[in-house]
């Protein structure tokens, strides 16, 4: 009994590490031509990994559904871009990423997390 419970605990820890840190298969999307919708709801951005081309203008349409105040801002800290989101009012964020690289976008508290990959 003791061994089983201890083993279960260790497996649980291994699972937490694997699921939250090692496993990388978030919902991905590519900005093609027009506008890309990003839904902000229940603690996540959907999709949360966005591919874009360097030097090309992108429009990310943030649709905030979550009334939790955490969701009210989206910040691209590496790009010095930010937006204030209103529940139910889509916000079009249009910009041109110039440099290749990975840029995180988060809420003010960095609990909502997403990534813009500029290729």
């Amino acid at each position: 009994m003791e061994i089983i419970i201890n083993l279960t605990g260790l497996v649980l820890i291994a699972f937490i590490v694997w699921w939250f840190w090692i496993f990388k298969n978030r919902s991905e999307a590519r900005v093609e031509g027009s506008v890309l919708d990003i839904v902000v709801d229940s603690g996540i951005y959907e999709p949360s990994v966005i591919h874009a081309k360097a030097g090309e203008s992108v429009t990310l349409r943030f649709i905030r559904k979550d009334s939790n105040p955490c969701a009210e801002k989206v910040l691209f800290s590496g790009l010095d871009i930010s937006a204030d989101l209103v529940v139910g009012t889509p916000y079009d964020l249009t910009f041109t990423p110039e440099k290749k690289g990975e840029y995180e976008f988060t809420c003010q508290m960095a609990m909502y997390r997403g990534k813009l990959i500029v290729e």
Binding site: F23, R26, S42, G43, I44, E46, S48, N68, M111
Partner: peptide, 19 residues
């Protein structure tokens, strides 16, 4: 309820937060 929904959604997305 919002904590449970939030927890589940972020879990599915390999994310964890306050919820």
């Amino acid at each position: 309820g919002r904590f449970f929904v939030g927890a589940l959604k972020s879990f599915k997305n390999h994310n964890a937060n306050m919820d």
